[in-house]
């Protein structure tokens, strides 16, 4: 990150994650799905960042791009800078990338089944992950795997080590996936909707666990979610995405107390259950943009009550608002 970037978190060490002007497209027979259209954000060591937006806004694709988890082709990725721990991931070779994934950055997903191979036991897979990054005996790696499962508060960790993914409940499997992600002591954890499929009580437990682990390991956290409640509970800074773009970035307090972008404000008031009593909610009319045919100008303009002629034709640039706040809106 350069010193001129207005949104660099002040007075912190070199960033672990750097994304500048990221564009990701998926060419189709009849055009291109423009999944990410110029996204920038960064994360300093130990920091926690929430990426919030509705489905299709480009949250997962942005994270997968910097982790180099998107196959190219079909994905077409360009960026001014895309780096993990200072290493340009666009230039990194296969082996260097495999090394970065795990020891610098790890990722967990909504569906833990995608992280595990159904035909191997949980223990075997964690041991393999450890040994892929460090030269240890299988016995030592197994002891480490056991300790990790205990650390993620799995009761009966020894038995779970020998069980298969399908034998565990959703919450348990989520914990096992977190254990596997942590097995290489990553400096940043990307958590992509880790609790979306879970019950509210299990969700609260997993979020608590992730926060505790972040503290213990001094690890950075990128929490990807469509749920503003999850953001309010877990992170210090928030990036709000819409239609493949960043609409706003600010501290979690500012997002909830003085949201700058009309989309952020509309999203906040549409959340159900904030007040007692049966009531109609303040809905955002219309639907999210079609990524293969995005609107001109600001992607939110067709649904924005404040939109004027300029919003329909020109995309507003990110405007610094001081104190690390920035937003992309002509009507600020």
């Amino acid at each position: 990150m350069t010193a001129t970037e207005p949104f660099a978190p002040a007075g912190q060490t070199a960033p672990i994650v750097e994304i500048e002007d990221l564009q990701v497209g998926f060419p189709q027979l009849d055009g291109t799905v423009q999944a990410v259209r110029g996204v920038s954000f960064s994360l300093a060591a130990g920091e926690s960042l929430g990426i919030v937006g509705e489905s299709g806004s480009g949250k997962s694709v942005s994270c997968m791009a910097v982790m180099r988890l998107l196959r190219t082709p079909p994905a077409r990725i360009t960026a001014r800078r895309l780096a993990l721990d200072g290493v340009d991931v666009m230039a990194a070779g296969r082996r260097q990338m495999a090394e970065l994934r795990g020891s610098v950055a790890a990722m967990i997903f909504q569906d833990p089944m995608t992280a595990f191979d159904p035909v191997f036991s949980i223990g075997t897979q964690i041991v393999e992950t450890i040994q892929a990054h460090r030269a240890t005996t299988t016995r030592a790696a197994r002891a480490e795997a056991l300790a990790l499962l205990e650390r993620v508060e799995i009761r009966n960790a020894a038995a779970i080590l020998d069980s298969y993914p399908h034998q565990l409940s959703g919450g348990m499997l989520q914990r096992a996936m977190i254990a596997m992600a942590l097995s290489c002591r990553p400096r940043v954890l990307f958590a992509d909707e880790p609790t979306t499929a879970l019950d509210v009580t299990v969700q609260a437990q997993i979020l608590q666990l992730i926060k505790d682990l972040q503290d213990d390991f001094g690890m950075g956290l990128v929490m990807v979610t469509h749920d503003l409640g999850v953001v309010a509970e877990t992170v210090d800074r928030v990036v709000v995405m819409y239609g493949g773009r960043v609409m706003e970035e600010a501290s979690v307090h500012d997002i909830f107390e003085r949201p700058a972008h009309p989309y952020t404000r509309a999203l906040l008031v549409s959340i159900p259950g904030q007040e007692g009593g049966r009531r109609r909610l303040t809905e955002i009319p219309g639907a999210s943009p079609d990524p293969s045919n995005p609107p001109t100008g600001c992607p939110f303009h067709p649904r924005c009550r404040q939109a004027d002629a300029r919003c329909r034709t020109d995309m507003p640039a990110m405007t610094p608002l001081g104190e690390g706040r920035r937003a992309a809106c002509w009507r600020l």
Partner: peptide, 17 residues
């Protein structure tokens, strides 16, 4: 009810389960 995420980041707290 206690498990519902709170929308006010100033109200963060450790939960007992």
């Amino acid at each position: 009810l206690d498990a519902i995420p709170q929308l006010d980041p100033r109200n963060r707290r450790r939960r007992q389960f």
